[in-house]
Amino acid sequence: MKRIIVSVTNDLVTDQRVHKSCTTLFNNGFDILLIGRKLKNSKQLTRSYKTKRIKLYFNKGFLFYAEYNIRLFLKLLFTKKDILLANDLDTLLPNYLISKLFSKNLVYDSHELFTEVPELINRPFKQNIWKFFESSILPRLNNQYTVCDSIATYYNTKYKTNFYTIRNFPLRDSKQDSTNFPFEINSCKIILYQGALNLGRGIELIIKTMLFLNNTILVIIGNGDIEKELIQKVINLNLENKVKFINKLNPAELKKITPLADLGISFEEDLGLNYRYALPNKLFDYIQAKVPVLVSDLPEMKNIVSKYKVGEVITDRTPKELASQINKILENGKDYYNTNLEIASKELIWEKESKKLIEIFKNLN
Rank of each mutant, 00 (worst) to 15 (best):
D90T: 01
P280N: 11
R71D: 04
A152E: 01
N186R: 12
I185F: 13
Y286T: 11
R123V: 10
N274R: 05
Y337C: 02
C188W: 06
S42Y: 03
I83V: 15
F78W: 03
N95L: 05
L106I: 00
S110I: 15
G333M: 07
F169M: 12
R167W: 06
K334V: 13
S324N: 13
I343L: 12
K175G: 00
N122V: 06
P259T: 11
L239H: 02
I151G: 03
I70H: 03
P299K: 09
R276M: 14
D88G: 00
G61I: 04
I4S: 08
S99N: 00
I137N: 00
F267T: 13
F169H: 14
D225V: 14
F30V: 05
L322Q: 11
Y336K: 09
K328R: 05
Y65G: 09
S345L: 13
K290Q: 14
A152W: 01
D177M: 15
R47G: 03
I32Y: 07
S354P: 01
L279V: 15
Y155Q: 01
L230H: 05
G61N: 00
I206M: 08
Q176P: 03
L93G: 00
R317F: 07
V295F: 02
K189S: 10
F267L: 15
L279F: 13
L63P: 02
S296G: 14
R47H: 11
R276F: 14
L34R: 07
L357C: 13
